[in-house]
Design a protein around this nucleic acid. Sequence first.
DNA 1: GAAAATTATACCTTAACGGGTATAATCATA
DNA 2: TATGATTATACCCGTTAAGGTATAATTTTC
Lengths: 67, 67
Amino acid sequence: MKNIGTFIKENRKAAGLTQEEFAVRAGLGLRFVRDLEQGKETVRMDKVNQALAMFGMKAVPGKADDE
Amino acid sequence: MKNIGTFIKENRKAAGLTQEEFAVRAGLGLRFVRDLEQGKETVRMDKVNQALAMFGMKAVPGKADDE
DNA sequence: GAAAATTATACCTTAACGGGTATAATCATA
DNA sequence: TATGATTATACCCGTTAAGGTATAATTTTC
């Protein structure tokens, strides 16, 4: 499974949303959405889950070596 | 899939480690390990991944409705 | 049951995340 | 190319996570 930032970026685009639109709808700050999609690792999990929830997902444990 | 805190708690116990031993081996603070296992949602993702890495895992997107 | 070990909760300090804003860079479209 | 839209990077500040320590509660072991 791809990393979470990539997942958000791809699904956001597939939904036809800009980062700004996505941030507003998810109730997140634009800066956070950008940091997340940019692969920042020190983000807060509650915010990450708030973003993933837009696609019916959440952060769960997965094999680390899955591409 | 269970939430991450539960995953850590169960696997840590299965490995026969106390929270303190686990914290030391993972290079994490004892307080963080406790907060994580207690279900604290505002933890930082890099620390969560540091804990999951002890079992070859990392945080990935998963279906939100999986029990 | 008692004692020891483990875990949970509370207080304090330091470092940094998240948010806002501004500016630069990149991409899309004509 | 030019123009606009979108995304990336940088700065400042308030809030808070993380870690340490101490104490209480819980669990385990005898």
